[in-house]
């Protein structure tokens, strides 16, 4: 396949959007958590747990939807650790997040080996079929990117406007943001800061679980150890880059999705660069993007700080 052909770039575009979805979902979740004032570093672990939970449930029930729903639920349950430690108790949010990530990496690998004994053929679930939207899917690049995707991609893209509406147009979103900007002021207006933060973190966990489910049962059709491979951390970075705004975050996620898709395709085509260097691309990009991010912080004013009622 020729690198400068429409076919090649159509392929990149399709893969780019699909690759960006897990980062996007995790990122949208992080916005809820961080807007409420809680750093959810554990998003990587929640994603990984969601990926495993979704795969296992889809495999045993045979239902794609139950799998996805269970993935979100598992992510949410794991985020309960963060809620207890960081909202109910004043434990350092970064330390808790890192601990959750390490715990989940070990636990998912362990349970995976118990349930699915390593053998010759790894268990799989059928991946949802691609649904091309007639007419639109033949537009070069754009059509390939947005109108020739598995059904879950379309559904997940709807999460962007939904998150935006909830955050900026609903009273829940306003109270959530107030809790993350000036919790004491919010409290004097009758907002229960701990409740808001609990909800923010749980929503974040559910999104992360869903992101994991997308990786295992949509993209791959199976579970492998450390399937998330740092995407949760990349999501944390794109939230900063995307200024805690769902729309910008989609843009940022697309950049990373493109980087990942490109490195995969370039590997397949076979350019004269060792594939390890291509694999590095999204991660190097993360570092570059963070270094370029403006110093003027737009982060919620009370982000990462525990709030104690008087």
């Amino acid at each position: 396949m020729e690198i400068w052909s429409v076919v090649f770039w159509n392929g990149v575009a399709t893969a780019a959007v699909r690759m960006s979805i897990p980062i996007l979902l995790a990122g949208l979740g992080i916005v809820f958590s961080e807007r409420s004032g809680v750093l959810n570093i554990g998003v990587e672990g929640q994603m990984l747990s969601g990926a495993f939970g979704a795969f296992a449930f889809a495999y045993f029930t045979g239902s794609f939807f139950l799998g996805a729903a269970f993935g979100a639920l598992v992510g949410m349950i794991v985020s309960g650790i963060t809620v207890y430690m960081c909202v109910r108790r004043p434990v350092n949010q970064i330390v808790v997040g890192v601990t959750v990530n390490i715990l989940c990496l070990g636990l998912t690998s362990f349970i995976n080996r118990i349930i699915f004994t390593p053998g010759a053929t790894p268990p799989r679930v059928p991946r949802p079929p691609v649904f091309a939207i007639p007419g639109l899917d033949s537009i070069p690049i754009i059509g390939a990117a947005f109108f020739r995707q598995p059904v879950p991609v379309y559904v997940m893209l709807l999460a962007i406007p939904l998150a935006y509406l909830v955050l900026y147009r609903s009273s829940f979103g306003l109270d959530l943001r107030a809790a993350g900007e000036h919790p004491k002021a919010a409290e004097t207006m009758g907002v229960k800061v701990a409740t808001m933060r609990t909800r923010g973190v749980l929503i974040s966990g559910a999104f992360a679980g869903l992101a994991g489910a997308f990786l295992s049962i949509v993209s791959l059709g199976r579970f492998v150890e450390n399937i998330s491979s740092g995407r949760g951390f990349i999501a944390l970075a794109i939230v900063i880059f995307g200024r805690w705004n769902p729309v910008f975050i989609f843009g940022a996620a697309l950049i990373f999705g493109t980087a990942e898709a490109l490195q995969l395709r370039l590997q397949a085509v076979g350019v004269g660069v060792p594939h390890e260097f291509l694999l590095m691309m999204p991660y190097v990009l993360t570092i570059i993007v963070l270094a370029l991010t403006s110093k003027r912080s737009l982060a919620p004013a009370a982000l990462g700080r525990h709030y104690q009622r008087e």
Binding site: R177, H182, A301
Partner: peptide, 19 residues
């Protein structure tokens, strides 16, 4: 002051309605 700097005047008054 118990005001959220990042929000405008209207939004500041609107805080606390979510229940």
């Amino acid at each position: 002051f118990m005001l959220v700097n990042a929000l405008n005047v209207l939004e500041n008054v609107a805080i606390g309605q979510s229940r």
